[in-house]
Nucleic acid binder design. Structure first.
Length: 1168
RNA sequence: GGGCUUGUAGCUCAGGUGGUUAGAGCGCUACACUGAUAAUGUAGAGGUCCGUGGUUCGAGUCCACGCAGGCCCA
């Protein structure tokens, strides 16, 4: 048996299984530690810093995670290709409410049961077990999708070292005075004595319809310089001749009990407001009131407007009983009203308390939440009982009305049980709502709201009182109405660095930019202090211990410090022993830290503040805590801060992006990241959100298995920019696979097939010199350089979509569909000549470069392609068995000095000297002319196989003529004509018919309004005028009686008709086809037909490409015989026929049919 | 309710600084091609550029107000 061994480009007969390809490459990467090498091989180079936004592993990953992680992966791989070292530490986000809720659901318990049915220790243990439940699935997906990140040494936010780092950072903030205890407005249930989470508030049934007493309150404007404009209308006489009438601001509330806590009024700064003269319906006082113009109709009847049913002069109004007369006096916008002062509604004169900051209160302020949907368009602000109120008041420096309790601690006017505090004068001790279940049935019973409203009616401060039904949230446990109430919280004083946050944000490169300036920028502009406190169990505990009287406190910044403090406490006999003394594994979670009591300098015991901190602090601490900094690794931290690049979903804007930024600015006075991509959502193909419930969620594992990781990644990136929402349609992935990957695969297969036949070896050292390359080679290489520059540019500016599309267009349109198609003959014809070698070299370079360029996006396929091109397959050929193929990639070097993986290479740079714009331009001309010629053939029903004598191309200048002339051969070959003939003014005079098209852009700038007339005049130009303009460079014409001078640039001259010829045009380009058929052309056409049929027969007979044949034709058709006689050499060459003979009788042959002919043919393999 | 964002052919998307006749791919129809063939070419059908106003000689593009989808926040 004859056996030969040789090294070849691997060939693949079957269509690729892309899923399998992914798995094979993955296994090879693992075996050879390619990821590790991609980092270690860049040791000593500059670092590209990337932070992994930690995912939570308590749920299965979805396709959107593939999207987000592809974006991250692309830029890390790209920077590696540029030679940077890119360490990527993985991480896990492990704390937080979702995990608690999941555990509670599984255990069938609620928060109330913690500490009763289950100990905190057991509960937290359960959380810890739950949170990493899906870690294996995540790791699996990470690998299969080709996301390179260090999974072996991740940071985990529940580990003691991580928490310790958080503590150290908190202590730094504490030492800077940025940590303080304050309050925020939260839903609170007085009957249950507890705050409610938004999750609890979203329980079904919590929102109920209730009927409340509501009131439109009148706030009396203080007359001063700021408010004088409200009084500016002429003073009008009143029947009793009193002093000028007061102005009141109207504000509606459904909670009258909050009015005594009012400290401000909010208007919308762009909303129009009016001053209305009218009468108070309860006191009959003559008054003027301010309310939104859009709300006037809701409070005043159109029939009682002045001059309608009421007397026309105000003094004649008298004292109407039922109807309230009114008249608009003046109009302002909200901005005009801001900072006007008003008198307190429930003042100290009536026994209501003083409070701190009172002099800054009782002002009109801006509120971006104010609308004219209901009420008066002016909102009463009580900072202690509304979240909007609190925020707007804080921004405008309006104080809250706070009074001291028995211990001197400041609190709101309602205590924690839901009653007014003792300082509330006549209402002291009254229940705000019925939280104690007292009897309301008595005839004289009045709710607090009613009592307050009655008092206001008497005071002349109630403008309208009515019962109003609306929905209001209730406590899910007690069924009583919720209060929005100030609850203690620890805060980070982010507002102290607000300006710096804004300033540094402007240095961050946001993709898309609008997220940085809009969503994030606005958020910073309206920044409030960061509420750190969470009343939960599974999270990082707040490391602050306080004495009972709150006069002394300590913030712990490390485990070592804690141990020292415990020792002190033990010495002071506040603790019996130090639980961490024996080097036991330290757990900094609850309940263990709660059982630690410390001693204050004055010897008092200190207790830990019970709160946990916001989990967003955990993730914002990643840059520091992933290295256990600042406890250790200062150098490592410095080297890896700030990040060059991060990427997460846009929903993280106020989450991770903010906490990273805030902590970096406060701790390091730096940005945390220089470039950030905020990616959008992945939706189902109908645009619906993916959800398990709707059953439209796409399984990432199934997708990757079916289409392979590369097509999946490519689709996600190429279809839409990452920051747009993506509608995920599997059909789109199929298309990417077919159109891009299959085309690239075919191109490679084509190369491998013929390169192997010629035993071609790529050797950079002995390349055919660039100057000796054909037009086509130099063209595709020029295009390739342009592509390199373009892809680099897009990836440098973090736009992967444009990069992917550019690569895709190059591969499908330029490389495959033009270069390879037109070069085919060069690859298969004859011996390995210089030209053939040049073709192999050119195609090889294109494919290798494409492999590099695509490798960040499609890392598996790129690796496959690269290794096929650089490392040949060791194969054995035996006569009996044919060629044995192996799908595994062998490690025999085909291309010298190539790294073993494409991901270890350095990305080629665009060689500007190889870019030839003129060449690219004329090749485009060739493409367009060919397309036009094809379309003419189509119209004339002349198949491409029929050669034609010539095409005619009118040219208007020598440049075009020269350009087309250089690509004439390509055009002729592509459209099967013998010559390209140029028509210009000198040849066959009178043939060219020219027309002009106005250049509107130029003319518009010059003539403006007269453009239409000028355009019409240009389109009416005669042939003589056109030629005059061409020859003399200007043309004087008249438009609307006015002379104007046209320049050549003002028009586009084209020839879109050739009388007597069938023409096709594409913009300024026109082509005519000579469809005259000579006998010779006909014969050549026949010969081509015959070649085609013989090729088909070869293929159908299962012949190898390189097999030689003998052909015998039946000698029955004179035309065919003549054609064979004339073009026998051609036919033999094309079909690799050693012999082409005629015989009278061809037995055992096949019948070939074409055109009007039918011929019997016998095809035999020539054995030698 | 607010901020941001998207809306162009049946579907997925391109359309710097305004220029009159709005493009590509897929899909559809017809024809052609056939040693890259699960490919390719040519032609065709398919558009109130979300709507309404405005600026302009001219608006898919700029402005205002809406409508619809999405995200975040309240």
């Amino acid at each position: 048996m004859k056996i030969t061994q040789f090294m070849k480009y691997p060939e693949y007969k079957q269509p690729l299984n892309y899923g399998q390809l992914g798995e094979d490459i993955l296994a090879w990467w693992k075996e050879h530690g390619i990821f590790e090498k991609s980092v270690s091989s860049r040791e000593g180079q500059s670092t590209f810093v990337f932070y992994e936004g930690p995912p939570s592993a308590n749920g299965a990953p979805g396709i959107h995670h593939v999207m987000a992680r592809t974006v991250k992966d692309i830029f890390c791989r790209y920077q590696t290709l540029l030679g940077k070292q890119v360490p990527r530490k993985g991480g896990w986000d492990t704390h937080g409410l979702p995990i608690e809720l999941q555990v509670e659901k599984e255990l069938g318990i609620t928060k109330e049961d913690i500490g009763h049915k289950i100990s905190i220790a057991d509960y937290n243990q359960r959380c810890k077990e739950t949170v990493m439940r899906f870690k294996a699935q995540w790791d699996d997906l990470t690998e299969k999708m080709g996301y390179w990140v260090d999974l072996d040494d991740p940071y985990v936010t529940f580990e003691p070292e991580y928490i310790e780092s958080c503590w150290a950072l908190l202590k730094r903030l504490y030492d800077k005075g940025l940590l303080y205890k304050g309050y925020t407005i939260q839903p609170y249930s007085p009957a249950a004595g507890t705050g409610l989470s938004s999750h609890e508030l979203n329980q079904p049934g919590t929102y109920k319809d209730v009927k409340d007493t509501t009131v439109v309150a009148q706030f009396k404007v203080k007359r001063d310089a700021a408010s004088e404009k409200l009084f500016a209308a002429p003073v009008w006489e009143r029947p009793n001749g009193d002093s000028p009438t007061d102005v009141f601001i109207l504000a509606w509330t459904t909670t009258p009990w909050t009015l005594p806590a009012n400290t401000g009024l909010a208007v919308g700064k762009n909303i129009p407001y009016v001053v209305v003269r009218t009468i108070n319906p309860y006191t009959k006082e003559y008054i003027r009131v301010v309310l939104a113009k859009a709300r006037v109709k809701s409070y005043f009847s159109e029939f009682t407007e002045k001059g309608k049913t009421t007397p026309s002069t105000y003094s004649d109004w008298g004292s109407p009983e039922r109807q309230i007369p009114w008249e608009i006096e003046a109009e302002f916008t909200g901005a005009d009203l801001i900072n006007i002062h008003y008198e307190r509604l429930f003042g100290t004169k009536e026994g209501f308390p003083n409070f701190e900051g009172e002099e800054r209160a009782f002002r009109v302020i801006n509120g971006d939440f104010v609308t004219t949907e209901d009420g008066t368009g002016i909102v009463h602000i009580s900072p202690t009982f509304g979240a909007d109120d609190f925020r707007a008041a804080q921004l405008a420096d309006i104080p809250a009305l706070m009074v001291p309790d028995a211990e001197g601690t400041l609190g709101p006017i309602v205590d924690r049980t839901g009653r007014y505090v003792p300082q509330m004068g006549e209402f002291a001790g009254r229940w705000v709502k019925n939280y104690d279940g007292h009897d309301e049935s008595g005839a004289d019973y009045k709710t607090l709201d009613e009592s307050i409203v009655i008092k206001m009616k008497g005071d002349g401060t109630a403008f309208k009182v009515e019962k109003y039904e609306h929905t209001y949230p209730h406590c899910w446990r007690t069924d009583k109405p919720v209060l929005y109430y100030p609850l203690d919280s620890w805060f980070i004083k982010t507002t102290a660095v607000k300006d710096r946050l804004i300033e540094l944000n402007k240095t961050i490169n946001w993709k898309p930019e609008s997220t940085g300036t809009g969503r994030f920028g606005n958020w910073l502009e309206n920044l409030v202090d960061w509420n750190l406190s969470r009343s939960r169990y599974w999270g990082t505990p707040l490391p602050i211990w306080r004495t009972q009287d709150r006069t002394e406190e300590i913030c712990i910044g490390s485990i070592a410090e804690l141990k020292v403090e415990i020792d002190k406490a033990v010495a002071a006999e506040i603790m019996t022993h130090n639980p961490y003394a024996n080097g036991e594994k330290i757990d900094l979670h609850r309940p263990y830290v709660d059982d630690i009591f410390l001693v204050s300098p004055t010897g008092q015991p200190m207790y830990r503040e019970a709160d946990l901190i916001d989990v967003w602090f955990d993730s914002g601490a990643v840059p520091y805590a992933q290295w256990h900094y600042p406890i250790e690794n200062a150098e490592k931290f410095q080297k890896n801060f700030p990040a060059d690049f991060i990427a997460e979903g846009v929903d993280q804007t106020r989450g991770w992006f903010f906490t990273l930024h805030a902590l970096a600015v406060m701790l390091e006075d730096s940005v945390a990241f220089k470039n950030v991509i905020a990616n959008g959502l992945v939706l189902a193909k109908d645009g619906q959100k993916m959800s398990k419930r709707l059953g439209n969620a796409v399984d990432p594992f199934a997708t990757i298995k079916q289409f392979g990781p590369d097509a999946t990644r490519w689709y996600l990136i190429a279809n839409a920019p990452p920051w747009d929402n993506l509608k995920f349609d599997p059909a789109g992935v199929t298309e990417v696979q077919r159109r891009f990957f299959s085309t690239l695969f075919n191109t490679y297969s084509f190369y491998a097939l013929y390169a192997n036949l010629d035993a071609f070896e790529m050797n950079e050292k002995s390349r055919v010199p660039h100057a000796d390359l054909s037009e086509l080679d130099r063209w595709i290489l020029s295009k390739l350089q342009s592509l390199i520059a373009e892809v680099r540019g897009h990836l440098d500016s973090y736009d992967p979509t444009k990069a992917a599309r550019a690569i895709q267009d190059f591969v499908t349109d330029q490389l495959s569909n033009w270069y390879v198609r037109l070069s085919r003959r060069r690859f298969w014809k004859g011996e390995l000549t210089t030209d053939k070698r040049a073709a192999f070299e050119t195609l090889n370079e294109c494919l290798q470069t494409v492999a590099q360029l695509m490798s960040p996006i499609a890392p598996f396929f790129a690796e496959w392609l690269y290794r096929n091109l650089t490392f040949g397959e060791f194969r054995v050929k035996s006569e009996e068995l044919g060629v044995e193929n192996s799908t595994t990639l062998n490690s025999q070097l085909l291309t010298l000095n190539s790294p073993e993986s494409v991901h270890l290479t350095l990305l080629v740079e665009a060689d500007a000297t190889r870019i030839d714009p003129k060449l690219e331009e004329r090749m485009e001309l060739a493409q367009r002319i060919s397309s036009l010629a094809h379309s003419l053939r189509k119209k004339s029903v002349l198949k491409v196989r029929q050669p034609l004598q010539r095409i005619l191309v009118p040219v208007l200048n020598d440049t075009t003529k020269e350009q087309v002339g250089l690509v004439e051969d390509l055009i002729c070959a592509e459209i099967n004509v013998k010559h390209v003939e140029f028509l210009d003014d000198s040849s066959e005079s009178g043939v060219l018919v020219k027309s002009v098209k106005p250049n509107f852009k130029r003319l518009g700038q010059q003539y403006g309004p007269r453009l239409k007339a000028v355009g019409a005049r240009i389109q009416a130009m005669t042939a003589a005028e056109i030629s005059k303009l061409e020859k003399e460079g200007s043309l004087a014409v008249e438009v609307d009686g006015q002379p104007i001078t046209l320049a050549p640039d003002d028009v586009e001259i084209r020839t879109d008709d050739l009388p007597g010829w069938l023409v096709a045009t594409d913009g300024p380009l026109t082509v005519a086809l000579d469809v005259t058929l000579t006998d010779e052309l006909r014969q050549e056409g026949l010969a081509r037909e015959l070649v085609n049929r013989l090729q088909n027969l070869r293929k159908d007979s299962g012949l190898e490409v390189q097999d030689k044949i003998r052909v015998t034709l039946a000698d029955q058709q004179p035309e065919l015989t003549a054609a064979v006689a004339a073009f026998g050499d051609y036919i033999r060459t094309e079909t690799q026929a050693l012999a082409l003979t005629f015989a009278a009788d061809v037995s055992g042959g096949s019948v070939l049919e074409f055109d009007d002919y039918s011929v019997l043919v016998l095809l035999e393999v020539a054995t030698s």
